[in-house]
Simulated scan of single mutants.
Amino acid sequence: MTIRNLPDEVHNHLREQATSNSRSIEAEARAILVNSYVAKHTGGFGQQLRSRFQNMGVIGEELSVTRDKAAGDAADFS
Rank of each mutant, 00 (worst) to 15 (best):
A39S: 11
G44E: 00
V65L: 14
V34M: 10
I32N: 08
E28G: 10
T66W: 04
E61Q: 03
A27F: 02
S36V: 03
R50H: 02
Q47M: 13
G46F: 06
V34A: 13
F53G: 00
S51D: 13
H41E: 12
I59R: 02
V34Y: 11
G46P: 06
R30K: 11
L33Q: 15
T66Q: 07
V38M: 12
L33I: 15
G44V: 01
K40D: 01
N35P: 00
V58T: 11
K40W: 02
A27T: 06
A27P: 04
L49I: 10
G60V: 05
T42A: 06
R50P: 00
V65W: 04
G57N: 09
N35I: 01
G60Q: 07
N55H: 13
E61M: 00
V38K: 13
Q54D: 08
T66V: 10
A31D: 11
L49R: 07
R50I: 06
Q48S: 08
E62R: 10
R30P: 01
F45P: 04
A39H: 07
R30E: 12
F53H: 04
Q47H: 08
V38E: 09
K40H: 08
R50A: 09
R52K: 14
E62P: 09
R30G: 03
E26I: 12
R67N: 02
N35S: 14
G46N: 04
N35T: 02
L63I: 04
T42D: 06
Q54R: 10
M56A: 09
G43P: 01
T66K: 11
A29C: 14
F45G: 02
R67L: 11
L63W: 05
S64T: 14
S51A: 12
Q48W: 02
R67M: 05
V58K: 09
E61T: 04
R52Y: 08
Y37H: 15
E62Y: 13
I32S: 01
R67W: 05
E26T: 14
E62N: 15
L49C: 11
A29D: 07
G57C: 07
K40M: 01
I32H: 02
A29G: 10
G44Q: 04
L33R: 15
L49V: 04
G60R: 05
V58C: 06
G60E: 07
F45H: 09
I59S: 07
V65T: 07
T66L: 09
Q54F: 07
G44A: 02
M56G: 08
T42Q: 11
T42G: 11
E62D: 14
S36K: 10
Q48M: 11
R50E: 05
V65G: 04
V65F: 08
A27R: 03
S64H: 13
V38N: 08
G57S: 06
V58H: 06
M56V: 05
R30F: 07
F53D: 00
S51E: 15
E62L: 15
V38P: 02
G44R: 03
E26F: 13
G60Y: 04
